[in-house]
Design a protein around this nucleic acid. Sequence first.
DNA 1: GCTTGCCTTGACGTCGGCGTCAAGGACTAC
DNA 2: GTAGTCCTTGACGCCGACGTCAAGGCAAGC
Lengths: 142, 142
Amino acid sequence: MRIGELAARAGTTTRTLRYYESRGLLPARRGENGYRTYDEHDLRLLRQIRTLQDFGFDLEETRPFVECLRAGHPEGDSCPASLDVYRRKLGELDALIGELRSVRAQVGEQLTRAERARDALAADAEVPGGPEPVCELGGRTR
Amino acid sequence: MRIGELAARAGTTTRTLRYYESRGLLPARRGENGYRTYDEHDLRLLRQIRTLQDFGFDLEETRPFVECLRAGHPEGDSCPASLDVYRRKLGELDALIGELRSVRAQVGEQLTRAERARDALAADAEVPGGPEPVCELGGRTR
DNA sequence: GCTTGCCTTGACGTCGGCGTCAAGGACTAC
DNA sequence: GTAGTCCTTGACGCCGACGTCAAGGCAAGC
């Protein structure tokens, strides 16, 4: 199988495969003509990489999984180094999710507060009838 | 106030301020000597930018807030355009958190599965006494 | 032979938010 | 005058995972 076919079967591009090779992640044999040659096992490795990439792993983090498969293990995560990556990733994910939830809460509060302030100002304007300042950007047409 | 002082008071760098100016976000007046000159109001704008940046807003998303303050409003989020940014951000955050939680769950499952497979293999090895394959990377020393 | 399509390497571009020089001007203190 | 500290603009570097273009080789069909 040549590079184009492998890329197509893995749903990626030839550029990506050459990039992986340049990183030493997915080296290729060469045919007489200099073309890269791959087999089903390479497709397996590539799919492992892509799956982890979809999970947000960086390339370097996929390396233990690839090495593990290449060492003949049935799964990319059959090796301790891969499990370590999983665990580290779980920690990172938990930390990140925590931060994002905190940010979400704060932004939510800001929105609520700002909306209340706006409504209070609008109510004020109705009674004493003072001309309130108006935003020029997307300002209310009224 | 010159650029160095403003940067220090906002806990950022002069490079950052020049960058904001280059983006048209925080223009500066100039003294006779060509030095940038800022006042307390600029500090206010800058702090608004920094707060939002800390929340993970990109620079462009802070623009409505800055424009709003510059238009004379009491808060950066006193304008509808700012509220829209808040709302959009909340949506993005919710989506992102959802994705991350999904990924977290999947990675967690993978880890559990892989550990079970490893333990099953280890138990097998104890009884029939077959030499199991060993990982070369961080493999067990035994 | 000629076109078409796949392949090769090399190298520059992308995105965001700055960091990090480099070369030189302005101002203060001694 | 000169040392030191601030300021100026300009420009390249960084990070990750590729995209994209250029110039040219190899193979197959007509």
